[in-house]
Amino acid sequence: MNQAEVSKLVSKLRMNIKPEHRRLKNLKGPEGRIDKLRKTVTGLIKFERIELNINRGDEARQYAERLISEAIRHGDCHKPTMDMANFWLLEKQLVHKLFKVLVPRFENSTVSYTKMIKAPKAQNTEHTNKIVLELRGNPYPDLIVKQPNNRLWIQNVLLDAAKYDYRQSKISEIAANIGKDTQLSSSSLTANNKGGTQKEES
C-alpha cells in the first residue's frame, strides 16, 4: 500500500525507445557522449530543425523529449527540473525559451514534441543515414508535402476508363467460356444418358 505509483514517477514519452542506449563512441568515453548529446539538444531547442546522423539524432531526441515533458509537468518553480534544464541547455537564454515558448506550445499536445524524418542520401556514398530532427510547430515550411490526387483529373479519368474497359472485356471473355463449358458438359451428359438408356433397353 505504501508503494508509490511507478507509472507516474517518470512521464511517459510518446516515441519508441530502444532498450539499450547507444554508446556514440569517442575518446572521452561516456562523458564525451553526454557532451555530444548536450550540444545536440541545445541545437535542437535553438534552431528547431537540424540535420545530423541517425545515431546521434535519435539518442538526443530522447533527451530533448524528456526535458520538454519534465518542463511541462513541473513548471519553472521546480528545482530539479530547473537544474536539468540548466545542465542540458548550454546557452542560458534557451532556458527561458523552454519555459516561456515551448511549454505553452506543447502543453496540450497529444503527440511527441519532436519529429524525426529521413534525409536524402547522396548516391554511391558510404555515409551513414542522415535524418532531420525538428520540433513540432516550428516556423519553417513542411518537409513532407502531401501529393494531392484527384479522381477527376484527366489522366485519372482516362486510366479509370481503360481499367473499366479491360475488366469488361475480361468478363465477357469469361462469360463466353462459361457458355462453352456448360455446352460441352451437357452434351457429354446426354451422351452418358443415352448410353444408360441403351443399356437398360438391352
Binding site: 494531392p148 484527384n150 477527376l152 483529373w153 484527366i154 479519368v157
Partner: peptide, 15 residues
C-alpha cells in the same frame, strides 16, 4: 487550370 478541385469543364474544354 488542370489541377482544379472540380476539373470536369476544364477537361471537356481540353478534349
Amino acid at each position: 487550370n488542370y489541377k482544379a478541385a472540380e476539373p470536369q469543364q476544364v477537361n471537356k474544354a481540353f478534349w
